[in-house]
Design a binder for these strands. Structure first.
Length: 347
DNA sequence: AACCCGGGGAG
DNA sequence: CTCCCAGGGTT
């Protein structure tokens, strides 16, 4: 695409002015709100994010409030949205911004924040500060691959370099905020992965994939994701009116969230035996009266989980610091995953 | 370069 | 089922 970028900018901006959605973070695009929305939108669809965003900015109204908050409270508001390192990084970055005294407004300053990569830095620069920084997300990549009929794996470094270069060429010196949002909006509403609506596309006359009459041939398909099967055994250890919960280590899956203690089980293994061994070795617990009370399935992008849930009677002994006896009514006040929520429903 | 990290929407 | 979503970080 060495042609004049101006017709593309003009058509796209005109289309966006007429067709953009009303989204909560667009009403008042402060750096804080744009930042929170962009982190939430990483690998997460707009419709999923909206209620989480509303709740989050109501609870933590600015950087100072977020920096002063307890991480467990931040995770509790984030619970259910997934990719929990985003919430931990958001909290940590809020502390850095609060210490610095002002929100970073340069590429280097933004990239220094944990959880902010090249895309998010460009999005904040352009949308919140209206600086002409390029962005490249899944939507933009798809639009550009079609516009210029770029083949090859769009995730490969070579294609990524070309797409970033193209994005940089296209972003206008004026109204870069509107332009970048328009590119993403076009990818979300018109230039969709399957069955793109070329009849409604403001760039159709300029699109090479459309000219070839095969828009769906771009971008080329990437590697297929293999879904692995995982088998788990989880214990609902009860004492009095409470049940034992443990907190997962950061860095792991569901890091920082609370769960019921459990372990993976080999495909041909004995779930109850493995679970007893786990409780004894890791928590120094030897509960009695084991009984399977249910089976829960949970799907992740790369995992297909089957969880066998056991009830057990409480032994004597004290939980470690990373564990707690929790009344069922108080479980959902803690940060828990969707899987833990399903298991809690068995109580 | 490959892998990990959640959950859900849509075909 | 499969693909993909306003990606980033680690190894």
């Amino acid at each position: 695409m060495e042609s004049d970028p101006r017709p593309i900018r003009r058509r796209l901006l005109r289309w966006f002015a007429q067709h953009q959605r009303t989204l909560p973070w667009r009403s008042d695009p402060t750096p804080y709100r744009v930042w929170v929305s962009e982190i939430m939108l990483q690998q997460t669809q707009v419709a999923t994010v909206i209620p989480y965003f509303e709740r989050f900015v109501r609870r933590f109204s600015d950087v100072a409030a977020l920096a002063a908050a307890d991480l467990q409270d931040v995770l509790a508001v984030w619970a259910g949205l997934g990719y929990y390192s985003r919430a931990r990084n958001l909290h940590r970055a809020a502390g850095l911004i609060a210490s610095a005294g002002r929100f970073p407004d340069t590429l280097e300053g933004l990239l220094a924040l944990p959880g902010v990569g090249r895309y998010t830095a460009g999005a904040i620069l352009s949308i919140a500060f209206d600086k002409p920084a390029p962005i490249l997300d899944g939507n933009v990549a798809r639009v550009l691959c079609r516009l210029s009929a770029i083949g090859g794996d769009p995730k490969s470094p070579a294609v990524r370099r070309r797409l970033w270069s193209l994005a940089e060429t296209l972003v206008p010196p004026r109204r870069p905020s509107q332009f970048n949002q328009a590119m993403m909006e076009l990818g979300a509403l018109v230039c969709t992965p399957r069955s793109p609506l070329c009849g409604r596309c403001p760039l159709a006359a300029l699109c090479e994939a459309k000219r070839q009459d095969r828009p769906e041939a771009y971008p080329a398909a990437g590697r297929k994701t293999r879904v692995l099967t995982e088998r788990w055994a989880v214990a609902l250890v009860r004492r009095g009116g409470c049940v034992l919960m443990t907190r997962r280590a950061e860095g792991a899956r569901w890091g920082g969230l609370w769960e019921f203690p459990g372990t993976t089980v080999a495909a041909t293994g004995n779930a109850e035996a493995d679970l007893r061994r786990f409780l004894k070795d890791e928590l120094s617990l030897s509960p009695s009266q084991f009984a399977q009370v249910g089976r829960v399935r949970h799907q992740l992008t790369h995992r297909n989980m089957t969880v066998e849930v056991f009830a057990a009677a409480a032994p004597k002994g004290r939980p470690s610091t990373a564990s707690a006896w929790v009344a069922p009514a108080n479980i959902e006040a803690r940060p828990i995953s969707k899987l833990t929520r399903k298991i809690a429903a068995l109580l």
